[in-house]
Amino acid sequence: MPEAPTLVADAIRFDAVGKTFPTRPVPLRAVESVSFTVRRGEFVAILGPSGCGKSTLLMMAAGLEVPSEGRLERGGVELVGPHRQTGVMFQDATLLPWLSVLDNVLFPATIRRIPRAKVLDQAMRLIGTVGLKGFEGARPHELSGGMRQRAAICRALVLDPDLILMDEPFSALDAITRDEMGDVLLDLWQHTQKSAIFVTHSIREAVLLADRVLVMSRRPATVAEELVVPFPRPRAPALADSAEFGAVVAHLRGVIARNMA
């Protein structure tokens, strides 16, 4: 690996990053001078309305979009393209329909030409953790939307990345499944020391999962407000029913309303 990560290096750092798309007739300014840092092991949620440019931000972090201005650092080194140690989850599970759940989970290993035997244990363990045991051989069309997204979580984690990027991963699910998936993710995070950026428009999800919440403004997206979530880990799903949790959610709702006005 060319970049030797030092212990002090942040997982990812945005430094005055901006992005303009050369659309016609008017160029689209999607992101405006965004600066923030995700430390190692930190879970950061990015909260904002639909279409505000959050996804662009995440695509830049994934190395799929190049910033128009500013600098993006990954582990202390400038990010120039997709990074081997980054796992990504999209809005849709995007499982390949002709592969079994297990083969889909192992797809990153296939692409990186890592022998199957090396990652099989990890894959099976993850599949068990998210509650898909017994469905390893099933095809995606036989699964529910929530189960597909669980498989996608496993796929993002199978190569043991140190940073996970999630782009509204549960927004295509119904409300009940959505809460369930939040719990799965929370449970998964109690045992790992991974960094994460989680883009969402659900305040509840953001507060439950994240150590820190960044509220984005309307397009062009910029960080309007930052909030450190005051709940210690490990957190239980029941936390969401507490009065303190409700207070934080209400506060954030106010922040967003102010920004939209």
């Binding site: 799929l64 997709p82 849709d92 995007t94 390949l96 692409i111």
Partner: peptide, 14 residues
């Protein structure tokens, strides 16, 4: 081809 699958390939550096 599903555009999401192509994006996945790019993320994985295929």
């Amino acid at each position: 081809t599903d555009s999401g699958a192509l994006r996945l390939c790019r993320v994985l550096g295929a």
